[in-house]
């Protein structure tokens, strides 16, 4: 601290002449450098240097450089709290995500099951094309003596042997609701007239299906008795492409409990 006596703020000697003298003194000091200014020069140089250095270091990006350890600890605490909050949020969000993915998986599993079931039911109900091992039966009827009953018996036998899909002449799919009617030179199946030679495609176990037609008193027997002929071919892959239109029931509705 400068040991100069401090004048009160309302200095009595602040007169115009005094001000002139002061300015003259300053100018003289600037014009005539004295040796006593040397120390002041060194110190002022030091001050300028330090000032510029400080200003420069302040301008750098050092938000935390000048902080005391207590401030840093406080900052760190704040950041830690924030990190904890963020962690908690992450955990919450992960939980939500796993819940959602769980429910999605459940839904997908249910959907897959439903799709499989619908495929199975569609094949059995005849609303979907089907393929698989089976047999092809060719029935010739040169004398027009194979009756509707013979064919119906054949269908029943095939069903009893586990036929999963039956198709007549590549034209009509035989399902539970299929109707059979007599007609001139042939039969009407589901409203479509088909005539000999009948080609019946059946999907099921080929051996069982083939055997079941050959029982005495069975389909082959009956057709042969009517002067027709039955040829059974076992196939690795029978394709049944015709489908029936699914009809919605008018009277029945699903009952509870299943």
């Amino acid at each position: 601290m400068n040991d100069t006596p401090r004048a009160p703020l309302d200095e009595p000697h602040a007169t115009p002449g005094h001000a002139r003298r002061s300015r003259a003194k300053l100018l003289e000091a600037l014009r005539k450098p004295s040796r006593s200014q040397l120390a002041g020069a060194v110190l002022l140089g030091l001050l300028g240097f330090a000032m510029v250095t400080q200003v420069n270091s302040n301008r750098q990006d050092d938000t935390y450089a000048g902080l005391r350890s207590s401030d840093l600890v406080q900052l760190l605490n704040g950041l830690n709290a924030e990190a904890r909050r963020a962690d908690k949020e992450i955990a919450d969000l992960e939980q939500t995500r796993s819940q959602l993915s769980d429910s999605t998986q459940r839904r997908q599993a249910a959907l897959k099951r439903a799709t499989e079931e619908s495929t199975t039911l569609g094949i059995l109900a005849g609303t979907l094309p089907a393929q698989g091992p089976g047999i092809r039966i060719e029935v010739t009827d040169p004398k027009d003596k194979v009756t509707l009953n013979n064919l119906l018996d054949g269908v029943e036998e095939l069903r009893a042997a586990g036929a999963e899909a039956i198709e007549f002449n590549n034209d009509v799919r035989v399902v539970a609701q299929t109707s059979f009617e007599d007609a001139e030179r042939g039969v009407v199946v589901d409203g479509r007239r088909i005539s000999a030679p009948y080609v019946i495609d059946v999907i099921g176990n080929p051996d069982t299906l083939a055997t079941t037609l050959d029982f005495i008193g069975g389909f082959s027997f009956d057709v042969k008795a009517s002067d027709g002929n039955v040829k059974v071919k076992k196939l690795d892959n029978v394709k049944i492409t015709t489908v029936t239109k699914p009809g919605s029931p008018d009277f029945a509705s699903s009952a509870d409990g299943q």
Binding site: L30, V42, G45, F49, T53
Partner: peptide
């Protein structure tokens, strides 16, 4: 005069050297 020169020299030195504050 010398004092003013000292101040200017100090400022210039600081600007030129741009030292890091330890």
């Amino acid at each position: 005069m010398i004092a003013a020169i000292g101040l200017v020299v100090g400022i210039l030195l600081g600007l030129v050297l741009t030292p890091d504050v330890p």
